[in-house]
Design a protein around this nucleic acid. Structure first.
Lengths: 244, 244
DNA sequence: AATGTGGTTGACCGATCGGTAAAAACTGTG
DNA sequence: CACAGTTTTTACCGATCGGTCAACCACATT
């Protein structure tokens, strides 16, 4: 998966990073991969401060020193995890935005679907990101940039449907919709009384998906209506001034 | 503020909790209050695992042992903080819901306003709650119950406007709206590039408030329209069956 | 068989963690 | 003043933290 070159001597020391890549006979995951997966899980569940390197080693089923051998330090290990998410997140967005066919409305719905797919495939990601953002961790600045760029891209997609400023600016809509998406994954399981069952099972997830699409549809309808009203008003204004 | 009786001997030992409450001459906050405020701040900013009792003592400007003297243990200290939020949260909701005058629409808007007021007065609360919920901390189960009850109360308020199940059920709307509210406080400061200024200054907060009210209005309009359509359809159905 | 190399191990380090015990200081009351 | 009760301080504890080290192992090359 990620780079398999150990981190022992941090950059300094002997020359180029010779990519060893010794063959692994049994098809199982490499040590580095096992560590990475354990770190991914624990970071999502317990957060950075709540996870110890011993926990990681134990869950991975390897010696603790191996974690440092392969990833250097706790910070580097979790940076690697976050970096993977960052790249997957970015790729998801870019791939979705690159498909430019269909109406604006179709493209927005498609973006939502791709975003939800990403969340469903990476269920620990929303938990991780909520924890780190709430703590102002600084370790997630790349992902923050992703979100800023995504909001700007949505702004271009919506074009003249939303004003540049004020309560209907794209950034507000973006915050609201991303809140709808992300919060479900973090809050719904904690509020399972409301659902009477596991909110993460496929049927419930699809229900949530429908809800969000309904919300998007409702918002877009209103934005279009308001735009038309603005244009009508402008036309009337023009008409009135020309006849005066 | 909270109970000022130290926790040294956990329940057992000498008889009733004699409320000492020795008078404090200088008007400043008591030691317990200083500790509590420091804990509140750090818990919101760094989370439970990210905060040490030494940090708390240092920020409060008191001896570390005093923290244990007054609050017993780390868990009890932070439980006290969370309990205060729980009660304030609950009181805010109950007071808002108890004012039953006005239309359903007015009452919903009022609830949103009161909720936003609470968040603005307790800016560390959304950060705390997001961290603890994302970690499935278990220390916030009272607050989770608050949210469940709030969702049910909103359901009663909306009455027959929302169906019991499916993507338009109250729980989905509740999740979406609470996401809009809470996520702004946790995400907006991390995405300050989008705002070109501090999203927590009063003008921006009011803009956000307007946005949320606009969203609520849009959702309610659509729900009312769909309800009327359903009734019209039902009437037509009835008419058709009576003339057949 | 000798050598070099990347992967692995267990023992260990100083720092910090939450928590405790007992003495010391402070306080109001007789 | 003596006394009792409360609050604060100092010094300490064992456990755990992130991280290091030297030895060791498996294996490919010479």
């Amino acid at each position: 998966m990620t780079n398999t070159v150990p981190a022992r001597q941090k950059g300094r020391g002997r020359g180029g990073a010779r990519n060893a890549k010794r063959k692994r006979r049994s098809g199982g995951p490499s040590t580095a991969e096992k560590i990475f997966e354990a770190a991914e899980k624990l970071l999502g569940e317990k957060g950075y401060e709540g996870t110890s390197m011993r926990d990681v080693a134990e869950l991975a089923g390897v010696n603790k020193a191996l974690v440092f051998y392969h990833f250097g330090s706790k910070g580097e290990l979790f940076d690697a995890v976050i970096d993977r998410y960052y790249k997957a997140h970015r790729e998801t967005i870019e791939r979705s935005l690159s498909r430019t066919y269909g109406s604006t409305r179709d493209r927005v719905h498609r973006l939502i679907d791709d975003y939800l797919d990403f969340m469903e495939r990476n269920r620990l990601y929303p938990r991780l990101i909520q924890q780190e953002v709430a703590r102002r961790s600084g370790r997630v600045h790349q992902i923050r940039r992703n979100l800023v760029e995504l909001s700007r891209a949505v702004g271009k997609l919506l074009d003249d449907l939303t004003p540049e400023d004020g309560p209907l600016a794209t950034r507000h809509l973006f915050m609201s919709v991303s809140g709808m998406v992300v919060n479900y994954f973090t809050y719904a399981p904690a509020l399972d009384e409301l659902w009477g069952g596991d909110p993460m099972e496929p049927a419930r997830l699809n229900e949530r998906r429908e809800h969000i699409h309904w919300m998007i549809e409702t918002i877009l309808d209103r934005l279009v209506a308001e735009k038309e009203r603005r244009e009508r008003d402008a036309g009337r204004q023009l008409e009135a001034s020309s006849t005066s």
